[in-house]
Design a binder for these strands. Structure first.
Lengths: 299, 299
DNA sequence: CTTAATCATAGTTAAAGCCTATCAATTAAT
DNA sequence: ATTAATTGATAGGCTTTAACTATGATTAAG
């Protein structure tokens, strides 16, 4: 295998037409350059340089190969400068995965600061259900997930970002809408509207509801939080909504969002990465930025 | 300095996503590849590979650098295949220098066989006076000269090709035109037309003439053999012409070309190269070809 | 719980690259 | 003409490094 150093020696000889000077320009001794060049010639099986006492010149073969050598060295230089540019840990593309019940309500609160804090990171946003996101994270298609933490993620590395309370969304006219102090126990025997299977919010919300003695309304399953919200607004039932979704879009005339007393049902939003993920500095910056952005909103 | 082998390891990892298989494809042991790759990462200061037990993947930086690495390796491959192509000693460009009093009369006799014998050599022909040719040979602008040998060429390497007799060119009406047996002594007291200074033929021809007791006609100097020939044809005098020039273009009605008896004046045509010239096999083939071509013509 | 797979580590060896010192050949100068 | 300087090649020794084998640690799967 050709060595890049040898190509440097060759181009140096071409430039200086003088072994001593060429060696100096390569910061090696003259015998070193002389020897390496001879080895290269032997390896290629052809003479590259005509040696004369007073006068060194390249053979036609040497001339052609110097051209090729320059191309190789240029490519190598590009490799190195590319590596140098990549050295900035706070630059490059970053694929962020979020779940549908979080993305549209969270992103408006965090992207501004993320883009300010990490101006050289290009964020690509991917919205998918937890299972898909984990798969893609594992495959390397995604770099970072932001979603509710589940035990099945223990093989990954995760950072707690914030706890998002779940609120009770009811029609204004509902008996629970005007209750002074609301607790999970109040849900007993209520029928709860839910999202479709696959949304982790459904499992979490229904977990709380079941333990409170409420039941799932199996007559309909919403495919998104917004349809769910519309169903509540049109009086078809009540449901648990994440605080960010409740806060953002009030639909205030028709829906009442009730805060629970302690113990408040929550979902713990975490940032998840592969263990050994290469851009930890970047991850830490994201964690800090999101926590900061959320500290003002979740009180 | 980056090493090409490391780039191969990197691309192999990208291809196989598996250290063992990648190592196998590079014909090294897995620890070797593992270690070299780690060194490369350390050297660049950035992580290229995410290592997991079950799953190896490139970091975004690694992904980009694999692209660069491929370009470098491709350039290196081109270098090597170019060297391979140059391995054929009977291929490539060859710059041949000749003097004006020889080129137009010799080339028609030798080029056909040269092109047949060395089909992959591209001959570039350069016509100049001896002094210029020697300078250009020394500078490497020319590879091979074909010209009359002079002692000042002893620092070069030379191969005798053939002896070209000099003939006496006279008008048909000249007293020497019809002489049965012609010798140099017959030139005594004749005035000889000559070429301009700088043409080595002038010096050689006049050397013979002077020692025979002839004189130079200083009233005019021809800039080429053809003008010289025309001057003879128009009766302005006599001159010595090289046999090849006499043979080719007879101008037979008006000029008589006389052969000298022994000692025949000649110029010894040699092939001259730099000592240590790299393409000796090619040179030997040229020498053989020219000698063969000329053996039929100079008898 | 054990087995297999996979990447990292440790220790060793062989080769390669580099250095200093010196030689040989040539040119330039006294 | 002899000496001094230049220049590329050679010799011998040192250091680095790339390679190997053997082994360890961790995880996934049977």
């Amino acid at each position: 295998m050709i060595k890049l150093r040898d190509l440097e020696y060759l181009t140096a000889i071409d430039k200086h037409k003088h072994f001593g000077k060429a060696a100096q320009s390569c910061f090696v001794s003259q015998p070193t350059l002389s020897g390496q060049l001879m080895k290269l010639e032997e390896q290629l099986g052809l003479q590259l340089v005509e040696r004369h006492r007073r006068n060194v010149m390249l053979t036609p073969a040497g001339d052609q190969l110097v051209e090729e050598a320059r191309k190789v060295l240029q490519a190598a230089g590009q490799f190195e400068s590319c590596a140098k540019a990549l050295l900035d840990p706070f630059a490059g593309d970053l694929h962020l995965g979020l779940i549908p019940t979080l993305a549209p309500y969270l992103l408006p609160h965090i992207m501004a600061d993320l883009n300010t804090t990490l101006p050289n990171i290009n964020f690509f946003l991917h919205e998918n259900q937890t299972k898909v996101l984990l798969q893609q994270l594992d495959e390397g298609k995604l770099d970072v997930l932001i979603l509710p933490y589940l035990v099945e993620m223990e093989k990954f590395e995760s950072y707690q970002l914030f706890d998002e309370p779940l609120m009770l969304a009811t029609p204004k006219s509902h008996r629970l809408a005007n209750k002074k102090s609301l607790s999970l126990a109040d849900l007993q025997d209520e029928k709860i509207l839910t999202l479709a299977d696959g949304h982790c919010l459904k499992d979490q919300a229904m977990g709380y509801c079941f333990s409170a003695g409420a039941k799932e309304d199996i007559s309909f399953q919403a495919t998104s939080l917004e349809t769910l919200r519309h169903m509540v607004a049109s009086g078809m039932g009540i449901t648990l909504l994440p605080a960010l979704a409740a806060q953002g879009n009030l639909a205030s005339d028709t829906i009442h969002y009730g805060k629970f007393q302690a113990p408040v049902p929550i979902r713990g939003i975490s940032l998840v990465i592969r263990p050994n993920y290469s851009r930890m500095q970047c991850v830490r910056a994201i964690v800090a930025s999101v926590r900061k952005s959320l500290s003002d909103i979740i009180s």
